[in-house]
Amino acid sequence: MELTVNSVSCTVQSPPLTSLLNVLREELDITSPKAGCESGGCGACTVLVDGQPRRSCLTALCTVDGAAVVTVEGLGTPEDLSRVQQAFIHHYAAQCGFCSDGMVVAATAYVNAGGSDDTDAIREALAGHFCRCTGYVKILEAVAAAARGDELDIDSTASSANNTYVTIAGAES
């Protein structure tokens, strides 16, 4: 079967019922989609299939023969980060990082579809994505910033909502 993964054409040998997650991770060694639950429950394996976010662990290879698949590696590189990737760095939205691959992919689909910075709309779009570290606030801020087209600076993190960080030394910034 044929797949175009991150703009590269691939002929894959895995059996047709193999999950797209296992095709990507185990046959093609593309490790950004994570096997968090392998049951569609956590969102960490999310990739774009023909532009739409899909759970790669729920997707049998035979159902995406000929499709264009994009993982987070295909969205941007360290030298050329996408807007959503920049926003995740600037807004401190990745903590342990294990959910970030799927989260960035789903957020990219949301922004590409013209999604707004409305918090409820972002929550709805990312509803299937678990993050156990951040409490989601930073993720919502990052996606909103990307949706608005905020100017982003990956060399510093964003200030928090009330615009102050109180540090242990009592200094504010």
Binding site: L17, S19, L21, S39, T59, A60
Partner: peptide, 26 residues
């Protein structure tokens, strides 16, 4: 029968069902 696959594919991946032959409705 393989329709959306949201139940069958994970069960198959985790070895919880044996599938000899499948028919995809897509």
């Amino acid at each position: 029968v393989l329709a959306g696959g949201t139940l069958l594919v994970p069960q198959h991946t985790l070895g919880q069902v044996a599938v000899e032959r499948a028919v995809w409705l897509g």
